[in-house]
Design a protein around this nucleic acid. Structure first.
Lengths: 224, 224, 224, 224
DNA sequence: AATGAATGAGATTTCATTCAT
DNA sequence: CATGAATGAAATCTCATTCAT
């Protein structure tokens, strides 16, 4: 097993996030706590009303602070949503990294299954995230963030797989290999979306199928 | 060639569509013409400003009639969007039916390819539709309509394939077969979305891959 | 006496004014009445709180209609202010035209005096206008409108004076003559501003001085 | 040449200016430096965004200190603007005093010309000041300060002229004489405003006219 | 004295929808 | 049927100012 890691430069700087310059601990703690409160409020509201129904007012009300204070921590409404994504996304990346590390010797199919099962774990742990991710993609910002993140996941997984010698590029160019990888990730993502749309806990049959189909599709570039 | 047709109960009743009570022919004709004008306006605006930027005012202005008159033909803004989808969708169904009819003896892979290429034809012919379909799915109504339509397409295609004896259900239950079919359609749809996101004319490599992967995934229930 | 008139294309189209397409008389009347009510409200508020304190809310409240209805008649807040200026400005132009017509044979000094006294008449008749004009020029839109209007007044008066043969251009170029005329108008305007700043009814001594100084300054281009 | 000086009680107490209680020299020095930094920032911003676009945040940011610290040195935003005026105004007074001192024996016309040319010098040297002064008068505070300052200038110049025996009061009362003086100053001011509005460097023709007209208007109270 | 953080109080504008005619 | 006009209901964001530390 190599030292390859799927966790690359994991944390995208979320555009619009306003970091209050932190200096003293008590203040920093308060700040962090408020940011968390805002994100929790937003998550809760998204689950209840959908991403479209999210308003600055409702966020502030739920978080128990004045609307104006939102703008102390976030550049605008969109930034809240993105921060929400980022927070859970980071957790997701960690889970994947951890499970892969624990998995030992892997084939391509194993890599796919381990990663995708890690995703499912996080969806279970974070129902709000699942909601946003699975239903909230009707918001452009979230959609774009999702696309962006999927690209990064693709890069990391491809690099990881290459490191382990799991890839046989066959006749495909590098660009084509990347396109195939990205397509695989998007397919898995979409299949999961369906699985969780049908059943909040994730339809088991569809989850299994999703894993199966991604691995199956990747056969064409798989060495072992 | 059997009498099977993918065009089943082709026209979904769009919720919210208000049928103006028709009485005299001239009126009916006028009505139809105005509905078309509204849909054309909406299509044009969606291409220009995206689904999010669509307003009743802009629709009315572009269509050259008073805002209030929209409500004579549609229950609300959403209904316009859905009618728009439905109109193009019907065209899409027709194209598929026609191409399948012309295709003669088919295997499962042939069925998949023929259908998907028919989709692409329509995307090319109707850029507005492509826009709505490929980018507009960030609108909840459109998204839901898409899901709904994909289900219907699945049903029709499965029935058609069964009719032709292309299906070998293996150990799968009927429900599972349906789930697999639906998943296949959604995957193809998503893959196309990526293809047209990357290139307004549809990235050729991705289109080919899409067809390939759908056919590949369906192997597990394919007789020939 | 010639047929020359200072009332040229007197009414500048106020940018942003939204004319509801008028068709039927009752409706037209209602519309007009509401516009008047809005302008009256704005005028009253400007007198009370100054131009800076004017808000859409206060206008609507005072006029007794919902804020949203303002936007039926005016593109935005600024447009209200400009319409207000225009309304009174038109009256001012009329007064000048009328008084000049009644004045018979004139010298340059007579032309200047007649015009400026006509201004004063209107200031007296329309205290709200006087307020806006004399104090409200701290608003950029109003200021710019004022400059613009002064230019038009200059053109009209110069043309009128030229028609009557009151001008002896001396060594000055056309551009310089225009500059001199504009300067004269602005000076008179400013002097009046001081006169009405000191006394809401217009300080008499300053008004006399204003007329005197403008006529005096124009000597250099006066034939008789 | 007498000892008369236009520089009277040159520094108007700016209302709202908060003198930080000075105690130790280093602190005082720091204070002074910060005040300068704030004023420089404000000047720069006014030139860039106009007086209307000035915000406490932008000032603080540009000056490189926390917003809250502004309030250590100034009572409110307006006070900053006024202090800015005052600073440049003092320079203007000095320039006038200096040029008059250098001018030797003067007539009324000479006094007017020397003073006004001194103004122009400072406008050229301080573009920010010119901006505020010439366009910023749409801000009430600045406008009022301008009026106030013009009054003081009038007093000083009248006293200076009287001292030199340039004045022949004719039939005018003292109050009238003052009114005439003030009017003359305001006229010159306004004419300059036009000159600098037309050309950032000051339209030469208009500047000459301005000087000419002020001297001309003052003829009525001029001894020589 | 200095300042990070907090916020009350608005401001302007947009839009879908509904009536009265 | 048609539609001009009207509007309730929000939504987002900005800013000057004030405290607690």
């Amino acid at each position: 097993m190599t030292s390859a890691s799927v966790e690359g430069s994991t944390t995208d700087p979320v555009p619009g996030a306003v970091g209050p310059t932190r200096r003293r601990l008590p203040t920093q703690a308060r700040s962090r706590e408020r940011v968390e409160r805002i994100l929790d409020a937003a998550a809760q509201l998204v689950v209840a009303d959908g991403v479209e129904g999210l308003t600055t007012r409702s966020i502030a009300e739920t978080a128990g602070l004045p609307v104006a204070s939102l703008y102390q921590y976030f550049a605008d409404k969109e930034a809240v949503l993105l921060a929400l994504c980022e927070r859970d996304m980071a957790e997701m990346d960690e889970q994947v990294a951890e499970d892969l590390a624990a998995a030992g010797e892997l084939t391509m199919a194993g890599l796919v299954e381990t990663s995708m099962r890690a995703f499912v774990k996080v969806y279970h742990r974070r129902p709000a995230f699942m909601q946003i991710w699975m239903r909230g993609r009707t918001n452009t910002a979230v959609y774009d963030y999702g696309r962006h993140h999927n690209k990064r996941i693709t890069e990391n997984l491809l690099a990881y797989a290459a490191d382990l010698g799991l890839i046989d590029q066959g006749g495909y160019s590098d660009a084509e290999l990347t396109a195939i990888g990205e397509l695989a990730v998007e397919l898995g993502d979409r299949a999961f979306q369906l699985a969780f749309e049908r059943d909040p806990h994730g339809d088991e049959f569809l989850i299994d199928e999703a894993i199966d189909l991604v691995a199956g599709y990747l056969q064409k570039v798989t060495a072992r």
